Computed example of a mutant assay.
Amino acid sequence: MSAAITPEEAARHSAKMAKIKAARDRMMATKTGEKGLIIVHTGPGKGKSSSGFGMIMRCIGHDMPCAVVQFIKGTWDTGERRILTRHFADLCQFHMMGEGFTWETQDRERDLAAAAAGWAKARDLIRDDRNRMVLLDEINIAFRLGLLDPIEVLEFLAEEKPAMTHVVLTGRNAPDALIEAADLVTEMGAVKHPFRDGVKAQPGVEF
């Protein structure tokens, strides 16, 4: 059981918090700009796509039109696909352009064609300034596999992305050029994962 806080301790705490709040308010007063961000979620840990879809749900909560293009997991029946297509199709366009992982298709020409089609769809969605956010899910894997050219993507974003559109790019091994160009980069670390202990991917956790 914790000891009771004395009036002197309570007063010191209040004074300390007041100083912190004043400093925070001064800092926030300088943060007045807004812009469409290039956001990267990468790293070996779990949660990259999950974080991207969390941002999509935030957009929906604010009645902001948005879109998703999935570059790799096109054959998966995921929970995020179900909820977005069944309940929020009026606010979020959802396009599954991948045909699964490359070891499943075993056909590089098909993989290249699927990635090209996904990027063509992504360009159309990004150009449409009604979409406030476009999630390019697992596009970093397409870069790593040589299915898409990250420089081409970055040039498009620099030249044609509307000023207030956010673009989120997920997947491990994000190329250095993308990390350098991005406004916000988060690297998910891998500390523990049940897959290493023989536990398969499960609904509600992985998909």
Rank of each mutant, 00 (worst) to 15 (best):
G74T: 09
A174L: 01
E104N: 11
E8V: 07
K46D: 03
M96I: 03
H95Y: 15
G54F: 06
G79S: 05
N140L: 10
G74F: 12
S2F: 03
I20T: 15
L148W: 13
I5R: 14
A142M: 11
D90W: 06
A3P: 00
V40D: 01
L135F: 04
D128W: 06
R196K: 13
K19W: 03
R196T: 13
K46Q: 14
L145K: 15
M28T: 05
R132C: 11
L184T: 12
G189Y: 13
A3I: 07
T30F: 08
K35V: 05
A116N: 13
H166P: 04
M188H: 14
M97D: 06
E138V: 11
T30Y: 07
M55I: 07
T30R: 14
T85H: 08
A190Q: 14
V69Q: 06
R127P: 05
A89H: 14
A23L: 12
A114E: 07
P162F: 05
W103C: 10
M1D: 13
A3T: 10
E99H: 14
G146K: 08
Q202I: 13
F53V: 03
E160P: 05
A142S: 15
H62P: 00
V185L: 04
R110L: 15
D176C: 06
N131S: 02
I20G: 04
P150H: 06
R12P: 01
D129Y: 04
M188E: 02
I5H: 10
A113Y: 01
G61T: 06
V134T: 02
A122R: 04
G52V: 05
T78W: 00
C92A: 06
F88E: 01
D25K: 09
F143Q: 02
L178M: 12
G45T: 08
L37V: 03
I60N: 01
G33P: 00
P44Q: 12
F156C: 09
V40Q: 03
F156A: 05
V167N: 02
R26H: 10
S49A: 10
I56C: 01
R82I: 05
